[in-house]
Design a protein around this nucleic acid. Sequence first.
DNA 1: CATCCGATTTCCT
DNA 2: GGAAATCGGATGG
Length: 223
Amino acid sequence: MPATPGQLPPGSLERIQAATSGFCLRPVLEVARDLLGRLLVHDAPEGTAAVRIVEVEAYTGDGTDPASHAHRGQTRRNAVMFGPPGRLYVYFSYGMHWCANVVCGPEGVADAVLLRAGEPVLGHELLAARRPGASERDLARGPARLASALGLDRAADGVDLETGPVWLAQGWPVPDSEVAWSPRIGLSRAAGLPWRAYVTTSRSVSPGRPGVPPKARSRPASS
DNA sequence: CATCCGATTTCCT
DNA sequence: GGAAATCGGATGG
């Protein structure tokens, strides 16, 4: 896998104008699908690092998704979800982890896509420094690991992906033949909906939580 | 691979 | 006041 800008495919580091290009203003499952293969980049004071997104989960804010943070209305934590699309929603979880979402619904509609795993493609040393002891494969394998490796925390909550220091880049495509859908991970409610999309050929997809049978994988939404 | 448990915010009762 | 949380690291088999 490429490790410097020069080795990345041409144009892959071009910033996506997430909101004004319409990238986010579509059904959340489509946005989730199209985030696979994209790069999440963070221009931090220490340097620039990026991962290629290989696993995501969709959460709808239309009131029908009890697993969404927005399901019980707007709170201080989830306020960014209710704002304009194309922003990063970062929340604190389990007393020690941060997780990042892309807000993709129009203002007032709290659709979001949780970024669950990525492959390091740029700033490897920086990513590794933020995740001491982790193997290359584990640097961003899991939502909190991804956020940690990229240095995303409360300060990144609400960042505008079109203008801010955290942004999406074009990356390179994932063919449909390498995309699978499964139930979302770690949920107690709406646990069956197959709204987790991942790249079947990536070794950096998260293992999921214990007790979640890995069998339900690779079955599409319909049947 | 399975289980265990940390350590804290958020939101509900 | 307390349960649940979009989890991860450590440990033991």
